[in-house]
Design a protein around this nucleic acid. Structure first.
Length: 1045
RNA sequence: GGGGAUGUAGAUCAGGGGGUUAAAGAUCAACGUUCUGAUAAAGCGUAGGCCGUGAGUUCGAAUCUCACCAUCCCUACCA
């Protein structure tokens, strides 16, 4: 057994262990050990390879790492393949920044092939960096050499398989409809890519002139003036009340909802008015108006010819509420899903004059090539000039933005490809019921609610760096036949060729003669796929990485996945949807959802400057930690590992606080100290685990209690791990190690295992402690893999045979400890709790009467109705409270010798009287304590002998010392004790100390420096223990001296 | 607008399918003190809470119901 360093330097320790794992290739030993028949199928949700990881990513990987390690120790073969999301806007946007490219057009000018190559390199570069960062977290035994990467051909083929299956299942279709598009990225976006941000917009009230009645206007309100260009109709609610109102100030008639008359006309505008006539909404149907921008947008005249209903009032009960606004809703079917709905129902042309980059096209007339949001102002100006603008308002509302570049999105009708997820909503909900969610509400509330309002999933994007849609369409207009390709092999078969790299632009070159009409050419549609489909299909797309074969149809659902709450609409959603559209079954059985890492209650973000990177913790460079000196030691990642696993309930945000993080370090330090202590005791005793054994039959109750607690703890942690209740694991383990082991068991066995102890139990107890500590180390190893590896090497590795276990090079080749049910004894645990409570109360009572714990008392009487604890627990009580006699009874008659306290278990009486024996023990224990302390200050080793000389200035003290001579020499390792009849002089050659005692003989308490200092300055100082007045000339002294070493 | 989570000591959080008990827990911080050859460790004690606010159900509510307020999140057609 090697010594363990008293100083815990986690930074160096971690680096050493990581190097050891690397050099010895522990990972391949783990893989060799795994049982191929018992698989725990875990799927890593892939992070984007956009840069370095932050604390939230670290948290995520550490939680996963805990379970990977745990399941391995339980004998599972674990799918430990990490993944990286490499496609999509996140990377394109970053790449554009790097290349100083401002928009899509510039990419085309730069060259798509070069751009794609750049993106791939960028992804690979970041992947390597992130790989190293994850490994540094201690999440080391993963298949980092061979992660699944979404840009690989084999992966792309997996996604094509999804498309083909969805096509065959009739769940893939193309459709023209309004969708939110990002004008900067020039692509359509799906619902899960919208980010709602609060913005202030100018809203306008506009009057549309009636085409039929003179001086009559329809009043509408909108926050998006730019959509007026494409206005096609006005909607009203058929059953709401409307009115035609005469506006005296303007000498004209307005039609609007009755509700809005008062607040709007007289309230907001201050006009005098008179109601001319009432309408019910349906009365208004078919009334015609003149489009307010007819001169500027001449195409509107063309449109008017296409449908009778253009520029007229339509009815919609669903989308118009008369309680809001003015009750008439401006409708542009090309710019809103509801407008679209109503437009289609009424046979209106779907007019979208906006290009994908947000600029108007030529059909917008005067506004051609203007950016829609810039046009707002001009439109308002024009309306003002025409006198049709009634009023403007600033409204603050939430508006959808691009998740990557934060541009305001533009609703515009466009032709896109969709998965029919809305139609399978019921099935999705049904599958969700069968998923085991932690926390339960993540699935049964959040995800359920998401799935119930699910819309068809728009999967096509008008971009470059992504998986190309494997859809080829015949360019013959009459034919238009569609082929969906499911693999590279299939493509080669049908087209005769297949590019080496399946990305754009190479894939775009693949065409073939239409096999249906024999005239046209099949050409690929230019779109790429929504990046969320990439990761959504991982279960089969990464099949090759998982087990070396591509067999998409036979995929097996993941046993477990774990991600943050943003994945409800992200990965959790895309996984389930892509499995359902392709295979009509679910692809994960259990799902753990965690929150986000917050900092002092705020979301961490680069813009707020409260962003923490794992390196800040590892190197101890976090400012909050440098502020306090005692925090400056906290380095490395092990503290964070322990902290983040237990810091918060499942599903809740982790509010990172430097203080709590530092508190966790104290726990780690206590655990370390515990092992240092045990290690030292074992070594001093020449403890040999294969020779010295404990025998369960001969054990006392304290030891049985420890084994019971250990097994209770193993059982609990095993249960928590199996049911994925992660946060309670560290709490349970901490409680056992710190409270039961360090603060209680070690205190009880201290005397037995001291170096000078010749207790017959010494070696059995050491053996038990050793055994329990090893199991603890195993329980801790998935949480703190590096710390435990170090201790394993120093203390346990060479002795594994003695515990009937194989000696392994790493602790991570050991198995999870088994619960020994028969050792769990509830009665013993309860009795111990009971006696601990009593001990606390009794100690508090001594404390109240200023009786030091090392001073014995004659007797304690406990009056209680509770069951009397067994003899052994009473012995523990007597020992730890330091009392000679304990009586537990149902009734007791007290006298003036006793003081008492009421406790929740009964009344505790303490005999506070002092006789000669008690007094001797008091004085001698104070003396011994002082000698011990002095030895320590002067750096004497434990067990190192001294030659001691003691003197005192009172005969009774001399007598007591004489009587206890042997006892003293034992305790302080003195091979010689000389007792002097008077005080010894300080000769400065030897170490000299003295104790000042209270002059009250029955007290004789040794006085602390602060009391003595006070006594020097002022009179009327009372002894804190006996309350008698202290006088300088009455103070008694014991002095001692011993050789320096 | 709709939905959800959270609200318990100075801080961070447990608990809570109503009630053995007059008394609501933990950890950290504060204060006091003890113990100690694990020693830049550890223990004990004290103080600190109308369990967000207000109603309701009940013999009895921190716990169940409703409303409201606050924080955060999700969702959405604010036209």
């Amino acid at each position: 057994m090697e010594p363990i360093s008293k100083n815990l330097d986690l930074l160096k320790l971690e680096e050493r262990i990581l190097e050891f794992w690397e050099n010895e290739d522990i990972y391949s030993m783990i893989k060799t050990k795994e049982n191929p028949d018992k698989i725990w199928r875990f799927i890593d949700g892939p992070p984007y390879t956009t840069g370095s990881i932050h604390l939230g990513t670290a948290w995520n990987k550490i939680l996963k790492d805990y379970l990977i390690r745990y399941k391995r120790m339980q004998g599972f073969k674990v799918t430990d393949t990490p993944g990286y999301d490499t496609h999509g806007l996140p990377i394109e946007v970053q790449m554009e920044k790097e290349l100083n490219i401002k928009n899509k057009q510039e990419i085309l000018e730069y060259g798509v092939d070069k751009f794609i190559t750049n993106c791939k390199e960028f992804a690979q570069r970041n992947l390597k960096i992130m790989n190293d960062q994850f490994k540094r977290l201690g999440s080391y035994f993963w298949n980092w050499e061979n992660p699944y990467i979404t840009f690989k051909n084999s992966y792309i083929e997996g996604i094509w398989w999804t498309l083909k299956r969805a096509w065959e299942n009739d769940l893939l279709y193309q459709f023209y409809r309004p969708l939110n598009c990002c004008p900067r990225c020039a692509t359509a976006l799906a619902k899960h890519e919208h980010e709602y941000l609060n913005v202030k917009d100018t809203s306008i009230f506009v009057k549309f002139e009636s085409a039929e009645d003179e001086k009559t206007f329809f009043i509408i309100w909108t926050t998006t003036p730019w959509t007026l260009v494409a206005n096609s109709a006005i909607m009203v609610n058929p059953i709401a009340e409307y009115a035609k109102v005469y506006i005296k100030d303007l000498d004209e008639y307005w039609i609007l909802s009755k509700n809005s008359i008062t607040f709007f006309i007289s309230g907001q505008l201050g006009y005098k008015y008179k109601i001319d006539r009432d309408y019910i909404g349906e009365d208004l149907e078919g009334m015609k108006y003149i489009h307010p921008l007819l001169d500027e947008v001449p195409y509107q005249k063309e449109l008017a010819k296409k449908s009778e209903k253009m520029h007229s009032i339509l009815l919609s009960e669903e989308y118009v509420s008369a309680g809001e606004g003015v009750g008439l809703v401006h409708t542009a079917p090309g710019h809103g899903p509801e407008d679209f709905d109503v437009g289609v129902k009424n046979g209106l042309p779907i007019f979208n004059p906006v290009k994908i980059d947000g600029l108007y096209n030529e059909k917008a007339g005067k506004f051609k090539n203007q950016f829609v949001f810039d046009a707002n102002k001009e439109i308002i100006e024009i309306l003002k000039e025409k006198g049709t603008l009634i009023d403007t308002d600033i409204v603050e509302h939430e508006y959808a933005h691009c998740w990557r570049c934060k541009s305001k999105l533009v609703y515009r009708a466009t032709k896109q490809w969709f998965f029919k997820t809305e139609s399978i909503s019921e099935e999705l909900l049904g599958q969700n019921e069968k998923i085991y969610w932690v926390p339960e509400w993540a699935g049964m509330k959040w995800f359920k609610s998401w799935l119930s309002s699910i819309k068809d999933w728009c999967i096509s994007r008008q971009r470059f760096w992504g998986i190309p849609l494997s859809v080829w369409i015949c360019n013959d207009k009459k034919c238009g036949d569609i082929t969906v390709i499911g693999s590279a092999k299939e493509l080669k078969k049908i087209a005769g060729e297949c590019p080496e790299d399946l990305h754009r632009p190479w894939i775009d070159k693949i065409t073939w003669k239409c096999e249906k009409c024999k005239k046209g050419t099949k050409t690929r549609i230019p779109d790429i796929l929504d990046v969320w489909l990439d990761s959504g299909s991982v279960v089969w797309a990464a099949q090759e990485v998982y087990d070396g074969e591509s067999h998409y149809d036979t995929w097996i659902p993941a046993d477990f996945i774990l991600e943050g709450k943003d994945q409800i609409r992200g990965w959790f959603n895309s996984l389930l949807c892509s499995a359902m559209v392709s295979s009509k079954r679910k692809n994960y059985d259990a799902c753990y959802m965690h929150g986000w890492v917050m900092r002092e209650g705020e979301k961490m973000s680069k813009s707020l400057g409260n962003f923490i990177e794992p390196e800040d913790l590892i190197n101890g460079t976090l400012k909050d930690l440098q502020k306090k000196k005692s925090y400056s030691k906290i380095k490395g990642i092990e503290t964070f590992r322990f902290y983040c696993i237990g810091a918060t309930q499942p599903g809740r945000d982790l509010n990172f606080s430097a203080k709590e993080y530092a508190d966790t370090y104290r726990v780690i330090n206590t655990i370390w100290n515990l092992f240092v202590y045990a290690n030292e005791k074992c070594r001093l005793a020449n403890f040999n685990p294969s020779k010295h054994k404990y025998d369960i039959k001969k054990m006392d109750k304290t030891d049985k209690w420890l084994l019971s607690r250990l097994n209770t703890t193993i059982k609990k942690i095993t249960n928590l791990s199996d049911t994925y209740i992660l946060p309670s694991i560290t709490e349970t383990l901490r409680d056992f190690i710190v409270n039961d082991l360090s603060r209680w068991y070690v205190v009880l066995i201290r005397d037995k295992i001291e170096v000078y102890s010749d207790d017959s139990e010494k070696y059995p107890v050491l053996s038990l402690l050793y055994d329990v500590l090893f199991k603890v180390l195993l329980l801790l190893s998935p949480i703190n893999p590096m710390l435990t590896e170090e201790i394993y090497h120093k203390m346990f590795k060479l002795n594994m045979k003695s515990m009937n276990l194989n000696e392994t090079l790493s602790i991570h080749l050991q198995d999870w400890p088994k619960v020994e049910e028969k050792l769990i004894d509830e009665d013993i645990e309860n009795q111990m709790i009971f006696i601990q409570e009593l001990i606390e109360e009794a100690r508090a009572l001594k404390d109240e009467y200023r009786i030091r714990l090392r001073w014995p008392n004659k007797k304690i009487v406990i009056v209680t109705e509770e069951k009397v604890p067994e003899e052994e627990f009473q012995i523990i009580f007597k020992k730890t409270v330091n009392v000679k006699e304990l009586e537990i009874t149902k009734s007791f008659k007290s006298n003036e010798d006793y003081v008492k306290t009421d406790s929740k278990y009964g009344i505790i009486y303490l005999d506070k009287t002092v006789d000669e024996d008690i007094l001797t023990e008091r004085i001698i224990s104070d003396l011994i304590r002082n000698i011990q302390f002095s030895r320590k200050i002067n750096k004497f080793q434990a067990g190192e002998n001294i030659s001691l000389k003691i003197g005192a200035n009172a005969p009774y003290l001399i007598k007591f010392i004489e009587n206890s001579k042997d006892y003293i020499s034992d305790k302080v390792s003195a091979n010689e004790v000389i007792i002097n009849n008077s005080n010894i002089k300080n000769d400065k050659i030897k170490i000299y100390e003295e104790l000042k005692l209270c002059g009250n003989k029955d007290c004789s308490a040794s006085l602390k420096d602060n009391i003595l200092k006070k006594l020097d300055k002022e009179s009327n100082i009372k002894c804190p223990h006996c309350n008698s007045e202290l006088k300088i000339n009455n103070i008694r002294t014991i002095s001692f001296t011993y050789n320096k070493n």
